[in-house]
Design a protein around this nucleic acid. Structure first.
Lengths: 211, 211
DNA sequence: ACTTATAGCGTACGATCGTTCGTGCTGTAA
DNA sequence: TTACAGCACGAACGATCGTACGCTATAAGT
């Protein structure tokens, strides 16, 4: 009854990877196991690993899929906003919403993978680091545009702002997952609002006349 | 040649636990393995696990020791400072220094354990959550005292401040471990300074006259 | 001196890990 | 119809996991 065409193969692979992402978000990329994953998708171990060759490749595939999911859920909805202050606010709101919605059953995949692999050299660690570095750049770029447009203090440091925004959102994920603190999302939004200036009006063109 | 006294036993246990903490800080509490740990301290598996009974007990012992190390390195040095704003600034500086010094070879133990166990029900998760909750309370308490003393805006939210301080420091640990970013420590200090008011003088008693 | 408690070891168990190999079965192409 | 390419399977591999049992040797208590 199965047709075994190339198209079906891709579907199988997608099914496996999607499940792997969910499992890894709760149990970690290392806690991900071929045997358990196989039984969850109704396959044999050998039939499953065949699509990847090795567990590390499976981890990389899961990481890639998780990154795509993050991008689709957080960035894509706001990519069309005007670059700079407006988009930066939008992406942070989207980010909070992404956490609130529980896109990954085990909390932010990239947060977990970051701390799991930060001491394990290899392609997985490299990919996680590169992905997060890229994300910080995305944030810093809009921060820089906002600064040049006068929507942030002229002496604001885009990279510092990106660091703090990232820390805030990761902190919200942490508090929600470990402490089951639903208020963490609101706290994150409050912190973001303060970092990016008041909730609505703002102009910094004429600030910092002294010092 | 071994003397096998109660005192020596405790020393052995301490040796094991200390090593377990270091290993777990890099490989995770689940990545911690009885066999590898035993060979690292020059013991047999059975001789080692005998001190704990089960792996979960070993994990709990490592967690307890890690908490003690964190407390000794971060809190104890500043416990004598005047409660409130002064001590809060001191504990944050001590916290940054703790990260900078690399007290744990794999980065902040509690950060890693938090994200590793936030989805694994059991006594380890419970203990991690309780420890972190206590830590947030410690921060919030001094924040409250500082607020009452007029060293913070009278409408400041101690729990919000504790959340943001914690997120900032965890973010620094993250950036340092994953991105090998040494500047993360400075960024964290900058963020802390802004959260707790300017670097030196500050008074908020007469602020917020409107609104 | 004799008993008792205990630290540590060696061995073994069943389970599960990632990976490899050989074998069908199915849809596509020649 | 025949040949082929590819998906999935079952079985088995060696390794390692956590744990249990039994033994020896020593220090402490009587």
């Amino acid at each position: 009854m199965a047709r075994r065409t190339r198209e079906d193969t891709d579907n199988t692979r997608t099914t496996i990877v999607d499940r792997a992402v969910d499992v890894a978000s709760t149990d970690g990329l290392e806690g991900l196991t071929i045997g358990r994953l196989a039984s969850q998708v109704g396959m044999s171990k050998s039939g499953l690993i065949r699509h990847f060759g090795t567990k590390e490749k499976l981890q990389l595939a899961a990481l890639e899929a998780a990154t795509a999911r993050f991008t689709a859920e957080v960035w894509t909805p706001v990519a069309g906003e005007p670059p700079g202050h407006v988009r930066l606010r939008a992406v942070c709101a989207s980010w909070v919403s992404y956490l609130r919605r529980g896109v990954f059953p085990g909390g932010c995949f990239l947060s977990a993978a970051s701390l799991e692999f930060d001491d394990r050299p290899g392609p997985v660690r490299d990919e996680v680091a590169a992905t997060m570095q890229r994300w910080l750049w995305v944030l810093a770029r809009d921060a820089e545009i906002a600064r040049e447009a006068g929507d942030l203090p002229h002496d604001a440091d885009p990279q510092q702002l990106a660091f703090e925004l990232n820390a805030t959102l990761m902190g919200a994920n942490w508090a929600h997952r470990l402490l089951r603190d639903q208020a963490a999302f609101d706290r994150a939004q409050v912190a973001v609002d303060r970092l990016l200036g008041g909730s609505s009006e703002h102009e910094f063109e004429h600030a910092n006349m002294s010092a």
